[in-house]
Design a protein around this nucleic acid. Structure first.
Lengths: 251, 251
DNA sequence: GCCGCTTATTGATCATGATCAAATGCCCGC
DNA sequence: GCGGGCATTTGATCATGATCAATAAGCGGC
């Protein structure tokens, strides 16, 4: 039994056996190509909570994919204020912001004990000519990142505190479901401090928004433990609160 | 004289003679490669103010580069509220958000009479194996887009109205300077309505922020005509207003 | 030039979220 | 179990920006 578990664990180490293979770099590749990818990817690097994977300013060595756990990317503004700009869940790529000038623009820290795969940039460039489907998949995943940036814009612009929190929770649950994790009851690795920073709100404001959502029966929340009781009303709160006619009738 | 002007105009039509060649797709390519790129790019499509280049939901045909003028990308939320998520100036690429599933996620409209080049997706894929430096440059430009998404997050999260407006103006001026346009006195093609939507503020709030910046002597503004009188104090207002110690001393 | 439309500005009031302050609860080491 | 430190919650007050309302300033059409 033990040896079987270890074998299973071994299988999951390789891209073709990984749970994330439908979402991550192997998607759209031929079996032979996946094997080739496997040779390049540095797998299963274990990162503990709050450990840095890299820091803004570091020369970029690789692009990264979350296998297990989650990460935050953030910037330190010139005035010393930090801003979280991204949360990364399993199957998502990050470190792509460094491709412009080979230098990381954000710092990345693990939000919990996590597991990350790295594809060295030198290898990526070397094989991209040989494996067009790989560079195509990298582009697809980068494009997804761009859209999630637009999601963030929408999240932050012209939304009340309650809407922001509700929308964040809906999306977080969706993303968890998408990568095969429990989506209605889970431990949010992200602290209130980090969440409020990400959402552009004060800690206290986020806390109060949680309270309201609890009182409405949408969720239960105890510290980082979250349970979504009524997803559909949570969605309503997230999206359909204000209908400014000015904007509603714009062509 | 007239014929000389026409000749010059002809030269600018081709990538190797284009003013934006250092910023845009030709950057980093060999002269031979630039000629090849030239054959693929559909050039100088003229777009009038408010004309759509494409709409969210359209099947993506190409990626686009601004040659002259400017564009806005925006989404229509399910509840009918629209949100501008990007402003595109000369030398910048857009339409990249469609690479994930070949379908545009945003609509794009010209903010003024503009000029755009298009690289068909089919061609991009076909030549990327043959021209690794081109796909590398596309990735570099996409990476820049990702970072500008992070800039937007920073712009919107936890900043006062005045800071948002000042920061927007600084960045807008920087981007204009970067692509060779007049940066201290110019016509902002973007309306107050669009600007306020982009910044997540009300129209009136943006108007008041302009007034304050005028009163401080940082700018003069008459409708869309803007003059930056004191860039350094504008930068100060944009970045160094609040120093929340909580965030300032975070590792 | 004049009229009507759209865009921008200014004013007054109100609601939301920031800020200041305190209390509570939880986790960890001893 | 106890105590200290940290994260979170709750409360009270205040400032900022949203909202409502009205005016002013271009701009195009005739």
């Amino acid at each position: 039994m033990t040896s079987k578990l270890i074998q299973l664990d071994e299988v999951r180490r390789i891209c073709s056996g990984c749970n994330m293979r439908q979402l991550c770099l192997p998607a759209g590749l031929q079996p032979g190509e996946i094997n080739e990818l496997d040779q390049l990817v540095q797998k299963r690097r274990r990162i503990k909570t709050d450990e840095y994977l890299f820091r803004a300013g570091d020369v970029a060595q690789a692009i990264y994919a979350v296998r297990v756990g989650s990460f935050k990317s953030f910037r330190l503004r010139e005035d010393g204020v930090w801003q979280i700009v991204g949360i990364h869940l399993p199957g998502e790529l990050f470190g792509l912001d460094a491709l412009a000038d080979r230098c990381h623009q954000v710092s990345v820290q693990a939000l919990e004990t996590s597991n990350v795969c790295a594809l060295p940039l030198a290898d990526l460039e070397a094989v991209s000519a040989r494996m067009p489907s790989l560079s195509k998949q990298v582009m697809r995943m980068t494009s997804r990142e761009l859209n999630s940036g637009h999601d963030n814009h929408e999240l932050l612009a012209r939304r009340s505190a309650q809407e922001r929190v509700a929308l964040f929770l809906c999306r977080y649950a969706d993303r968890r479901r998408n990568c095969g994790l429990q989506a209605d009851s889970f431990d949010m690795a992200i602290s209130r401090q980090d969440l409020s920073n990400y959402l552009g709100l004060q800690l206290e404001t986020v806390s109060r928004a949680f309270r309201q959502l609890k009182d409405l029966g949408c969720i239960t929340a105890n510290r980082s433990l979250l349970e979504i009781k009524d997803l559909s009303s949570l969605r309503d709160i997230a999206g359909f609160c204000d209908n400014t006619p000015d904007y509603a009738y714009h062509q």
